[in-house]
Design a binder for these strands. Sequence first.
DNA 1: GGCAACCTTCACGTTCGCGTCAAGGTTAAG
DNA 2: CTTAACCTTGACGCGAACGTGAAGGTTGCC
Lengths: 182, 182
Amino acid sequence: MGHDAAGPAAPAATVSEPRLLRIQEVAAETGLTPRSIRYYEAMGLLAPAARSEGSYRLYDADDLERLRFIGGLRNDAGFSLAEIGQMLEDEQARSRNRVQFRAGSPAAQRAALTDAIDRIDRQLATLARKRDRLDAMIADAAARRGHLRDHLADLEAGRSPDHAPHTGVPRPIRKASQETAR
Amino acid sequence: MGHDAAGPAAPAATVSEPRLLRIQEVAAETGLTPRSIRYYEAMGLLAPAARSEGSYRLYDADDLERLRFIGGLRNDAGFSLAEIGQMLEDEQARSRNRVQFRAGSPAAQRAALTDAIDRIDRQLATLARKRDRLDAMIADAAARRGHLRDHLADLEAGRSPDHAPHTGVPRPIRKASQETAR
DNA sequence: GGCAACCTTCACGTTCGCGTCAAGGTTAAG
DNA sequence: CTTAACCTTGACGCGAACGTGAAGGTTGCC
């Protein structure tokens, strides 16, 4: 059942294979757990650069970067693995193919690069949307704070609170064309 | 089809209660489900303003705002309900008590307001931290993009890419351990 | 007072994102 | 060759965050 990948006849192209790490080292390096890394692989988010003779997972620097990105998307940005899968698409396959395409025609190289840039642009757009939502919430909370501070000022000035029982933002009832109300 | 939902149920008990909504209306208004709203209540994130004779949950405008905030924290900001509970603390109890404290001494009013402002400040700080993480990721991706574009430029200029096998970001200093926020 | 549409409280089922054994094979060191 | 430390693939478990009935009470309109 062993499934030899690549075998002894390595690509022989790259002169200096920097170093391939085993899963535990990768885990230590990325702050993830081996379990998570395997799970991400099962979810199709990445594939190890290689497997050893005995089918140990072996990761290269590219994998490390990818895993850090995934970890960030998970923990910092709060995306689900499904969403991350969407964002990464088949970048994993391409990324690996791209290395081979490097030996290919310049046209292929150019295509691969522009594709990669497009993908990153889409990732950036998704991240920016997320940040905008966050900014909206922050603005909302800030408005709430301002309102409270106004009430406090009124109170300090001995004014009557006027029975406005609302701590909050003025209802954005859709009446006219404003921005994209969600 | 079922025309109408709750008619103008004016109990006329208190003086001009703005309007109390039942759970399904609230759900429609906030984009949440009744189940989620009840779950949030079970998790201590909020309590309905009142209950009807037959123990129907009845929500006021303040509850609506709170639920929208919770929804935003969940869906937009990606916080867990536990984290949201931390951020909201006992604001729910206070918020409701505050209305009663309004009839209390001015000192109590001032204290309640400054407390509320402090809580919002902490919420803002938490949200800002989250946004900073996101910004960092965005900067990271942008750097990656810039690097790819450089490679593309090299290629267009007929230069050899020098076989740099990395798609990515200049390695950040690796050393710090990962913080575990869950 | 009848009835449909809503609500209530259980209670079980589900998906996600892993943690955690279990039962072996693999690697590097000695 | 032995051995400890790592790895492999299952498979089961778990907490979070709900979905989905089931069985019955409430509201409100006619």
